[in-house]
Design a protein around this nucleic acid. Structure first.
Length: 423
RNA sequence: GGAGGGAUGGCCGAGCGGACGAUGGCGGCGGUCUUGAAAACCGCUGUGACCGGAAUGGUCACCGGGGGUUCGAAUCCCUCUCCCUCCGCCA
């Protein structure tokens, strides 16, 4: 959520940010109009409440009923008027907040301006795509042939975009999770967290998925419980409504969770293989920092994710997203893409974002800079480290051999009982 | 799932219709005293919103959440959530 004071003070800045994101800039004017109405009504209510408080205190002190009666009658009328105005204030507040909750974050000045992903900027690349002496297969052929990936059973159990991993395929998935968690906790300084995979509605508002992106979420109607689309949601809400003490920051968390997404918006896209499923595993890095240090933390998290990519020895590149491709809550985002020679595309295996105080405002996460000082909003950052199925794709397709077997990356072998090869 | 008891400021704990944003204690901060420290004593000690150029300024709201009764609610009523105890069930 944007600071309403910023919108009041500098509406032009917010309008141009919305334009850069392909959003309607007149939203700003609607917010300002409702906000002005809200403030006018609020002033009225508060003046009437002050009067009622004052007179009610007087009534309490009076003993003579004859004196009290007229004042009580008078205050009853004031009370009715207050109730009317309160309804109007509440209505204006709801309308304003609903708009405010739908405004995306402001892009950081370093973000390239552009309408869509064609304007993203490749900022670095590691490794060269391997030269194959045969036609590399896509993972949707390799996996089933190796007997580790089963699309039919997934469809049988749930439907399209679900799959089953068998044997070494399941082991590979589990090894990746364990290895990534190990590196982040032992070498990158993160604390591992095991989280609920479902959350209540307000957590999704806090992290920015609601009210705008309800379409993409699975939801239990009976209890109003929602499956997490990413660990970022529960991680953001861990400290919701808290004031963190001085010296608490930065907080660095890492969590494995499955992620659940309906993918309604992407119907028909990426239907082959395991690139885009309704359920996938992800290890997520998360940091809560002071406003002064969040951009250093962003670079640090990018480095932590790249470290994993290099150790897996898979060619990859870093892409900086332009304004038009930026996620709703993000001020600045780097994607990491791994090369997949079988399906012939760069796969997004990580997305690392600084949300600045956008989520902190929604989730009301603050910190106290000094003992006794006024609380300030924290900055929150999230980054995949890494998203599993796409790493599995990259491993299968990059490490495939002419005989149809797949070598296991060196770093993962200790996590797979010393296994060197699949098939 | 059944029966009962709770939820108050950083913590403990009073208050059960009228000057309560809330007695008291602990903790924390500042001061007096002291070579220094402790003890003792004194003072301060929540969050947010609105108005205002600003104030050590004014007003409003907040005693788990929401709603109601009343001139007036931390206090009364309804409802939801969570916690505790006992019973049942179970990984």
């Amino acid at each position: 959520m944007l600071d309403i004071n910023l919108i009041r003070r500098d509406p032009h800045l917010v309008r141009s940010a919305l334009v850069a994101r392909n959003e309607d800039p007149t939203l700003v004017d609607r917010v300002l109009e409702i906000d002005a109405r809200w403030r006018a009504l609020l002033t009225q209510v508060e003046e009437l409440r002050a009067e009622r408080n004052r007179v009610s205190r007087e009534i309490g002190r009076m003993k003579d009923p004859a004196q009290r009666e007229p004042l009580i009658a008078q205050m009853r009328a004031v009370g009715d008027r207050i109730a009317e105005l309160e309804d109007q204030v509440r209505a204006a507040e709801i309308e304003r907040d609903d708009l405010l909750l739908r405004l995306p974050n402001l892009p950081h000045p370093s973000v390239p301006i552009g309408p869509d992903e064609r304007h993203n900027v490749i900022v670095q690349q590691w490794g060269e795509p391997r030269l194959f002496e045969f036609d590399p297969l896509p993972h949707w052929d390799l996996g089933p042939e190796l007997g580790i990936l089963d699309f039919e059973r997934g469809v049988k159990l749930v439907g399209s975009r679900f799959y089953v991993l068998w044997g070494v395929g399941a082991l590979l998935e589990r090894a990746l999770i364990a290895w990534m968690l190990h590196v982040h906790t032992h070498e990158h300084g993160y604390t591992e967290v095991y989280l609920p995979f479902v959350v209540k509605r307000e957590c999704l508002v806090g992290a920015g998925q609601l009210p705008k992106f309800e379409d993409n979420l699975y939801h239990d109607v009976e209890d109003d419980i929602w499956l997490v689309p990413t660990a970022e949601v529960p991680l953001t809400n861990l400290h919701r409504d808290e004031i963190l003490p001085p010296d608490a920051l930065p907080l660095k968390y890492v969590a494995y969770t499955p992620c659940f997404r309906r993918e309604r918006m992407s119907a028909g896209r990426d239907i082959r293989g395991i690139k885009r499923g309704h359920q996938f595993d992800k290890v997520e890095m998360y940091q809560i920092t002071t406003p002064e240090t969040s951009y250093d933390a962003l670079e640090e998290m990018l480095e932590h994710a790249l470290d994993l990519c290099r150790r897996l020895e898979i060619p990859h590149r870093v892409v900086q997203l332009c304004t038009g491709d930026l996620g709703f809550a993000a001020a600045k985002t780097y994607d990491i893409e791994m090369w997949a020679p079988g399906c012939g595309e760069w796969l997004e295996v990580s997305s690392i974002s600084n949300c600045e105080d956008f989520q902190a405002r929604r989730a009301n996460i603050r910190y106290r800079p000094e003992p006794g000082a006024r609380p300030r909003f924290v900055h929150t950052l999230n980054g995949s480290g890494l998203a599993l199925p796409r790493v599995v794709i990259a491993i299968l397709e990059n490490y495939q051999q002419p005989d149809g077997s797949v070598l296991i990356p060196e770093v993962l072998r200790p996590w797979m009982g010393g296994l060197e090869r699949i098939g």
